[in-house]
């Protein structure tokens, strides 16, 4: 790339309409958003405000009805299904509220799954998966299946799976929604660490202000628009 680097993510005039005619529902009504590399953004808002829709679009799982979405300067809204899948494979990592691990599959196998799709060999897959599990504090738990792990541990496995590919952006959809306060804090500290130590941009949907405190920026959605967007001082760990 030459000259000034484009922002990591740039949304301009994004709308999203579900259904058509009388039943049409406009989930997003013109969203403009710029996210720079290295940010930790908390996306907040009441249910129905469009925060999940915008996350799906940011995660290239869904396409906008109109508007433009540029990822590192490249237009995403015109990409086809497979191109978006490749973008997810190489640049994005996902963490979900419900963990979404494969059942009856060991933590190690869960974590190495994205590498399988990248076509990596067994040895490098295992090494990378072990490293990622160690990074989330799960050394020694490689052979446990999700049923043998606590909620917090399952979410750590999910995070390991998301970061095993060294993604540019980590998208977390209510990552602490199913966890108690102590586990939630641990997960948030882990995300903060990944953001600060490893420079991974984190986009997180949450409706808990406590959790949003960990982010460096909060974007509030109301009725399909950005209501306010502010930077906040970085919170120190273990407050």
């Amino acid at each position: 790339m030459t000259g000034t680097a484009p922002p990591l993510i740039e949304l301009a005039g994004i709308t999203k309409t579900y259904g058509s005619g009388q039943a049409a529902f406009q989930a997003l009504r013109g969203v403009d958003l710029r996210i720079e590399a290295g940010e930790f953004v908390a996306v907040m808002g009441p249910s129905g405000s469009g925060k999940s829709t915008v996350m799906n679009i940011l995660g290239c799982l869904d396409t906008p009805s109109s508007g433009s979405y540029r990822f590192q300067g490249v237009h995403v809204e015109t990409m086809d299904r497979n191109q978006r899948a490749l973008l997810r494979r190489h640049f994005l990592g996902f963490v979900f509220q419900g963990f979404n691990l494969l059942g009856r599959t060991s933590a190690l196998e869960n974590v190495e799954l994205p590498l399988l799709y990248r076509g990596e060999g067994v040895a490098s897959r295992h090494a990378a998966a072990r490293k990622a599990l160690a990074q989330v504090g799960l050394d020694g738990w490689e052979d446990h299946t999700p049923a043998e792990l606590s909620g917090g541990q399952q979410q750590r496995v999910a995070i390991a799976r998301a970061i095993v590919t060294n993604p540019t952006v980590l998208l977390a959809d209510e990552p602490t929604g199913n966890l108690d306060t102590v586990r939630s804090r641990e997960i948030m500290e882990l995300l903060t660490e990944l953001n600060r130590q490893h420079g991974i941009t984190v986009l997180m949907v949450t409706h808990e202000p406590d959790m949003a405190e960990y982010a460096s920026r909060q974007v509030h959605f109301v009725d399909g628009r950005v209501a306010h967007d502010h930077q906040q001082p970085a919170r120190t760990d273990g407050a």
């Binding site: 899948a85 997810r88 994005l92 691990l101 990248r118």
Partner: peptide, 16 residues
């Protein structure tokens, strides 16, 4: 279905 969703989300292609 959910498992397929996970696979697709982490970047599995349709033909894969």
């Amino acid at each position: 279905t959910r498992e397929i969703g996970i696979r697709l989300a982490i970047g599995a292609l349709e033909h894969e």
